[in-house]
């Protein structure tokens, strides 16, 4: 199976529907691991004492940390993984559980506030639009999702529009 008109119709039904998800508390270990994986040794991301000397309550996450994390739960059971390994139930509203291959195509991010370890984060996601495009492998759908990340006080931390390619 590849994307077809049925997939497109299902996605178009999802356009404009808002989803809200509590992602949880951002742990210092997670943000440090993220920075380590990127290869960023900035002490602001690793050294709590240094971060506190700059007025932060704890280490700060690299700016694109929030959208970089694909899954915030414990992870799906194996029978809920697509063929490409992506989780069928997370963060791509409207995308079928099976038969669709997913690729990242880019992102527009606005960084409103720094994300400090200990912050409790929620995310609102809405599918903005779906555009068909011809590719070498046949029909491809370009879906644009808007994500807004807020802290426990409802203050915006980051908002982004990510482009997802579906084949």
């Amino acid at each position: 199976m590849a994307v077809d008109d049925a997939v497109r119709t299902a996605l178009e039904r999802e356009v404009g529907v808002e989803h809200e998800e509590l992602l949880g508390e951002i742990s210092a270990t997670l943000t440090r691991r993220y920075a380590a994986a990127v290869g960023d040794s900035d002490p602001l991301y690793h050294d709590a004492a240094y971060a506190k000397s700059l007025g932060y309550a704890n280490v700060v996450a690299p700016a694109n940390f929030l959208p970089g994390v694909i899954c915030w739960s414990e992870g799906a059971p194996y029978d809920r993984l697509r063929e490409d390994g992506t989780e069928a139930d997370t963060h791509l509203p409207g995308v079928p559980a099976k038969g669709v291959r997913v690729m990242g195509g880019g992102e527009e991010m606005h960084f409103t506030r720094p994300v400090v370890a200990g912050t409790v984060v929620s995310r609102r996601t809405v599918l903005l639009d779906v555009t068909p495009r011809d590719s070498k492998q046949g029909l491809m759908l370009v879906a644009r999702y808007q994500d807004e990340y807020v802290d426990e006080r409802g203050q915006e931390l980051l908002r982004s529009v990510r482009t997802v390619l579906l084949r």
């Binding site: 990127v38 700059l54 992102e107």
Partner: peptide, 27 residues
């Protein structure tokens, strides 16, 4: 794609330093 984004983020924040702030990044 997000690791590409992380490299670009690091590029900007390394360049900008503490006195500046990255506000937007589109890739």
């Amino acid at each position: 794609s997000h690791l590409h984004g992380a490299f670009l983020t690091k590029y900007c924040t390394d360049w900008a330093g503490r006195a500046a702030r990255l506000t937007d990044l589109s890739l």
